[in-house]
Design a protein around this nucleic acid. Structure first.
Lengths: 206, 206
DNA sequence: TCTAGAACCGAATTCAGATCAGGAGCAACG
DNA sequence: CGTTGCTCCTGATCTGAATTCGGTTCTAGA
């Protein structure tokens, strides 16, 4: 659906993808407010005004990056959990998948983490608001997906009884909090972190 | 030290506290970028320029709110954990204390959550940078405090062996993630949430 | 070839945050 | 008492980055 939509709305000369990539690198690297919109234009090799052909505003671009990543992450979770049926194993593969990302996807996760507050308040412009609602809906679906995994495990009496909605949020909160401090050059590799978070989530579920 | 410093540097006519309170309500309510610096001035009843007598910039005010809350939170954690010695009980009271906050402190926690990315990059101006470093140092101390609690529990063979530093971060990530979705009028009260997070943290430690 | 729409641009505008150049009130001190 | 030195405050002005305006160029398809 997404690929179709992108292919459909993007002409062959489109620099949309280049803009998004440059924006991800900049927003994720030096931060959103610290990134000048003009810099993105320079990096892509177009005038600043041309950016408005693709995005309604700097924030609209950010929201697009965020909902794209949410969508990717949701799809991936669904894909890997569908492959296994044991509740414990489902949690394991879901968490592992959350950390099995490219460097750029890691940046997108960090951006997502740093700007979730944007998803709270209404946006005045049409396209921004549409993108915001898409993102919110995806967040809801992700929470629902995880809650369902937990619920299934509880019903199968593999997991202990808990409020699955709150537990899902806590688990996701823990998983995502990693993007706040993880750095590619840091003391811990993603693989190491992943392993520990997988174990932690399994403990949480029981 | 802080109280002394504030009392020392604040004259009787000072509107510093009023500004901070107005800023917390606005930043926490409608968001930092959505809040006009001029609005704060209006609410306090002074001209926009007068704000610069107290804070070097809007961001400096935000950083001050953040490090204030970090400091309060750290002190509180230290105070309540010092009262008990059983590792399980220490985790329990520490988590409970994290959710035992006034409505305004809850807003400060939300602000803290939404702008931790500010603590990453260097700030150009002196006072901003000083405040940023104070905040970073407090974050480090908080992580260290929790890691120490976990380590003590592991050494006492109450908790299972894990990397206490990573586990502390994950636990704090989970606890703090609540401020992202908790709302006073929401489906869950803070007391209910607290109870569930306490239980979750105990499970994590074992 | 003609044309709709995608892609683009330089100049001008906007607006919130920040600066400038002071002024008023108050306490302390000689 | 006057003056010195703070804290606290202000109106006018500036700045810089996002955005708008009013177009032009390019290209796929009829």
């Amino acid at each position: 659906m997404t690929v179709d939509e992108q292919t459909r709305t993007e002409g062959p000369r489109s620099k949309r993808r280049m803009i998004l990539d440059a924006a991800i690198d900049n927003f994720g690297g030096v931060g959103f407010e610290h990134t000048k919109w003009a810099t993105i234009a320079d990096e892509v090799g177009i005038g600043q005004t041309a950016l408005y052909h693709y995005f309604e505003s700097k924030v609209h671009c950010l929201l697009t990056i965020m909902s794209n990543e949410l969508e990717r992450s949701l799809e991936r979770t669904r894909a890997v959990t569908a492959e296994v049926s044991d509740p414990d194993e489902q949690i394991r593969v879901a968490v592992a998948a959350a950390f099995d990302v490219t460097p750029r996807e890691a940046l997108q996760e960090r951006i997502l983490m740093s700007h979730q507050d944007l998803l709270v308040g209404e946006r005045s412009s049409k396209r921004e608001e549409a993108e915001r609602e898409r993102a919110r809906e995806l967040v809801r679906e992700i929470e629902h997906e995880w809650a369902a995994l937990l619920k299934a495990g509880m019903d199968a009496e593999v997991f202990a009884r808990h409020d699955e909605v709150v537990l899902a949020r806590l688990m996701l909160g823990m998983i995502n909090s990693v993007w706040r401090w993880y750095r590619p050059k840091g003391a811990h590799t993603l693989a190491e972190i992943s392993e520990q978070v997988v174990a932690a989530c399994v403990r949480l579920a029981h």
